[in-house]
Design a protein around this nucleic acid. Structure first.
Length: 252
DNA sequence: TCTTCGCCACGTTGCTGTTG
DNA sequence: CAACAGCAACGTGGCGAAGA
């Protein structure tokens, strides 16, 4: 059949073209994501600098003249220096894996430093977590619990649990094994993978990934990201760097 | 019809603060 | 100082929806 031969040829050509285009697209995507991250960080630092400046100006007013000069001069400097330290033009260089890590690390020295420290001290972080204990102790607790009931009804569906317990599992494993290099759906999975890739060797928690994706800080959203991370791990697109820590899979 | 994805809920674990 | 209680985060299992 000449037709099938022609078809096979065109498929090959198209495949080659697409494969050629793929890395470029991936690079472009990463570049855009880096841009977004850089702009976001920049925005944050500008905001905080503005806040600091505004606070300073309010404080400086009642102060005596001679002191005002000294205070303003000294105090303003660091605040102004913050935005200057990371000019946009530098923060936005496209597709520079090394620069990118540095940029991120510098751009968020106060807020997200914990992310970088997560790997060695994931627990210390919890301890550092803002308003975790004494403040929000007995305040916020309920909310998610009540919704558990309808779920229980489902689970209480008895036979389902016992019988279906193994079926889905087997199905999942089979699926994973049968399709070693699956999904290129530009959905959450890819976004999560991109976040991991952006952070290179820095292990991230599901919460951090969710944050980077601009998702809600809710348990549900985080669990979703976690599930996605688990899938990435299962498909070798990511790896665990510890309990609750995920890292981009080493390029093999 | 099957596979994948996203989401939800439950149980477990680890840490911190409080009390005896 | 040790035990207890509370809270947040993590891990896992399961379900429904959507796409191939």
């Amino acid at each position: 059949m000449p037709n099938s031969a022609t078809a096979a040829g065109s498929i090959e050509t198209t495949t080659a073209l697409l494969m050629e285009e793929l890395p470029q697209l991936e690079q472009h995507q990463q570049a855009l994501e880096k841009d977004l991250a850089a702009v976001t960080e920049r925005l944050e630092s500008v905001r905080s600098a503005l806040t600091a400046l505004q606070a300073l100006s309010t404080v400086a007013i009642p102060a005596p003249r001679s002191e005002v000069r000294a205070d303003a001069g000294e105090a303003v400097q660091p605040a102004v220096a913050t935005p200057e330290a990371e000019p946009v033009s530098e923060a936005v260089p496209v597709a520079a894996p090394e620069t990118e890590t540095e940029t991120e690390a510098e751009a968020a020295p106060e807020t997200e430093t914990a992310t970088a420290q997560d790997a060695p001290a994931q627990r210390a972080r919890r301890a550092t977590a803002p308003g975790r204990k004494s403040t929000a102790k007995k305040t916020a607790k309920p909310a998610a619990k009540p919704a558990a009931k309808p779920r229980q009804a489902k689970k209480a569906g008895t036979a389902k649990k016992t019988t279906a317990v193994k079926a889905p599992k087997a199905r999942k494993t089979a699926a994973k094994e049968s399709s070693p290099a699956p999904d290129n759906t530009g959905g959450l999975t890819d976004q999560v993978a991109a976040v991991l890739a952006r952070n290179g060797d820095t292990p991230l928690r599901a919460r951090d990934v969710a944050k980077e994706l601009g998702r809600d800080d809710t348990t549900g959203a985080i669990n979703t990201v976690r599930s996605t991370l688990d899938r990435l791990v299962a498909t070798s697109r990511a790896r665990r760097a510890g309990r609750g820590l995920y890292q981009a899979a080493p390029a093999n």
